[in-house]
C-alpha cells in the first residue's frame, strides 16, 4: 500500500484440469505483477472446487483461468458453479489459452468477460483487468 487507503487489485491465476504446462499462465501472472497487481498463483492441476475456494479465501477481484487441454467447456462451468455455491458472485472472470472461436459466445454467456485466445498480448490482458475492476473499498 502506498500511502493512504489505496485499493490493491488482487488476481487469482489458476490452471484447471490435467494439462501440466503453465508457461502461459506464468507469463500472464508476471505481466500482472509488473503492472502493480498482487497475483495469487496456485499452480497446475486445480479442481474447480480448489479454484473457487482459493478465490474465496484470497478475496480476489479477478479470476483468470488458463487452459490448453481443450476441456474448458467441461471445466469452466464447474468453476462458475463452485464460485456461486460459495457466494463469490462479484469477481471478474477471464480465460486464456487454446479456446476455439465457436466457444467464445458460450463462455461469455457463462460470465467470462475477457477471453484471450492465442496471439493476445499480455498488455491486452493487463488493460482488461485494470478496466474491469470497479473501485471497491
Amino acid at each position: 500500500m502506498t500511502t493512504t487507503e489505496q485499493r490493491q487489485i488482487r488476481v487469482l491465476i489458476a490452471k484447471p484440469g490435467l494439462d501440466g504446462h503453465d508457461r502461459g499462465a506464468k507469463v500472464v501472472a508476471r505481466a500482472l505483477r509488473d503492472s502493480g497487481m498482487e497475483v495469487i498463483y496456485t499452480g497446475i492441476r486445480q479442481t474447480p472446487e480448489m479454484i473457487a475456494e482459493a478465490a474465496l479465501q484470497e478475496d480476489v477481484d479477478v479470476v483468470g483461468l488458463s487452459i490448453l487441454s481443450g476441456a474448458h467447456m467441461e471445466l469452466f462451468p464447474r468453476v462458475v458453479e463452485a464460485l456461486k455455491a460459495r457466494g463469490v458472485s462479484d469477481v471478474v472472470l477471464f480465460a486464456g489459452g487454446i479456446i476455439p472461436e465457436e466457444d467464445v459466445a458460450a463462455l461469455r454467456a457463462l460470465g467470462f468477460r475477457g477471453i484471450f485466445r492465442p496471439g493476445a498480448s499480455t498488455q491486452e490482458i493487463v488493460e482488461f483487468v485494470r478496466a474491469s475492476v470497479e473501485p471497491r473499498e
Binding site: A29, S35, M37, E38, V39, I40, Y41, A54
Partner: peptide, 22 residues
C-alpha cells in the same frame, strides 16, 4: 515480498498447500 519497483507481487505459497483447500 512486494516488488519494490512495481508494487505488484506474485504470491505462490498456495502451490505447496493445495490439498488444504478442501
Amino acid at each position: 515480498p512486494t516488488s519494490p519497483f512495481t508494487s505488484g507481487a506474485i504470491l505462490g505459497d498456495r502451490i505447496r498447500m493445495q490439498d488444504l483447500t478442501g
